[in-house]
Design a protein around this nucleic acid. Structure first.
Lengths: 257, 257
DNA sequence: CCATAAATGTGTGACCTGCAACATGACCGG
DNA sequence: CCGGTCATGTTGCAGGTCACACATTTATGG
């Protein structure tokens, strides 16, 4: 309906986003008649907006994006989703209801958090990642504690001295982190502030889990997070090459595929 | 796929909910083949679950329910967007580059933050709202500091004693908050933890701004945030009724429309 | 003013979904 | 063993959606 003027493409897409914030799910056919354009136009709009990550497509319509959208990290987050899902599915098997977890910011750990929210309950989770916090909070039985600090768009979370100090006040059953790379020296990170957060989490946890996909094997990066023997468990998707495998055995790390 | 045993109806629906927390949108046809049951069965499941409010149906599938049950933030957030935009546009005129701001969680303050990110630079912003932090961080010249605390899905941000204590360590040029209602007593809040955060922000700021739309005028709520004279400036979209207007004048509050 | 590109509309065939009616099989109390 | 209920599968059809090609309209820049 809305006998109003026909809108420009930009305005129309803006309007769709607005509608989406109100009603959560939309159908193409409804939008088409409401905005006075053809079905095909709306379909093309949604296609575009879906590709640029503004919305999630559904069959016949669209739904609002969960929250917080980072172009910087949506790229990275979309690569290797299958492997990450696999790693996450395996990793949650080590978590028991009622535990206290520290979870790092990162795309693999986010998958892990989503799985946790879906399949476990009554956890207390301390995290520096907004996305992890939001994912877990969809499950009302979870207690989610967010760290303070300077927000970093790249990481989608906070870091810095406030964050480190805050983590130091807690004790956890388990710290779960990702990393930029893994060598015989240990896990490493391209971002120094992130490395410090990971270290702080490991320092306060009984068991220290590393979730990492095989592409990171052998990759050296700016800063080593900790020695290999400080990691108690690694969950990954493929067996590492000879040298790294040997180092892992030597460090007595439990390796899960 | 999943050559597993066929599940009971209860288990199957549970599984659907779990999947939904992971992937946000599902299609009946995918679920059917994944769970090894017929299309019709899944359709009937979703129909049931939709009626009991566990999920939102879409054409051909389902999506997770956005947030909580209350219109807290999904429905309410976009009623009145025009008014909120207006309020936000006016409110940013009082902010100068380089200032330190504290910004509360809320839909009006989120609009305000988006405007800030678009039109100002070099601010330092301390906030308890994830959405505000993310909005501001899209502008690289901004320094965004997030508060610690327990994450509250309804509010989309953190609160609690850690948050209050953290805020107490900072001094700001300006605190910018929203409220559930405004009476001659002062701004009030339906959520006690949120009220405490707002108070903590006001306690550390030279100027204390309240952004509020006219629908909230005269609305009493659970807890009064502070006395009217503790507010230094109110930005709104319509002039308040006689009694409230008088109280505002008496409290020497600058009122902007 | 025209030429060009972008945006939008139209039409079509393949495929998908909704819905209802009916069949099948499992489970259960008598 | 029977009859009933419940969950599920099957079938058929009406209607919706997708994806594509092509025509048409609407910006846009010289």
């Amino acid at each position: 309906m809305s006998g109003t003027q026909r809108l420009s493409k930009r305005d129309r897409q803006q309007r769709i986003l607005a509608e989406l914030r109100v009603s959560a799910t939309l159908r193409i056919s409804e939008l088409a008649s409401e905005l006075g354009v053809s079905y095909e136009t709306i379909r093309r709009d949604l296609e575009e907006m879906g590709e640029s990550g503004l919305i999630n497509r559904t069959y016949g319509g669209a739904v609002a994006r969960p929250f917080g959208f980072e172009p910087a990290w949506s790229e990275r987050a979309n690569a290797m989703t299958a492997e990450r899902e696999q790693i996450a599915s395996l990793a949650i098997k080590f978590v028991r209801p009622g535990e206290v977890l520290m979870i790092d910011a990162g795309s693999t750990t986010l998958h892990f958090a989503r799985r946790l929210a879906a399949e476990l309950k009554d956890l207390t989770v301390i995290t520096n990642s907004f996305a992890v916090a939001q994912a877990l909070a969809t499950n009302p039985s979870m207690t989610v504690i967010a760290c303070p600090g300077r927000y970093d768009v790249q990481e989608g979370g906070v870091n810095g001295p406030d964050c480190i100090a805050f983590l130091g006040r807690y004790n956890a059953n388990r710290a779960v982190i990702g990393a930029s790379g893994l060598t015989a020296e240990g896990p490493n990170e391209a971002n120094s502030s992130s490395a410090a957060v990971k270290r702080a989490m490991f320092a306060r946890a009984q068991e220290r889990m590393l979730l990492i996909d095989h592409l990171k094997f052998g990759q050296p990066n700016l800063e080593v997070v900790c020695a290999l023997q400080d990691v108690s468990r690694i969950v990954t998707d493929k067996a590492p090459a000879r040298e790294l495998a040997l180092a892992l055995r030597k460090a007595e790390i439990e390796l899960h595929l």
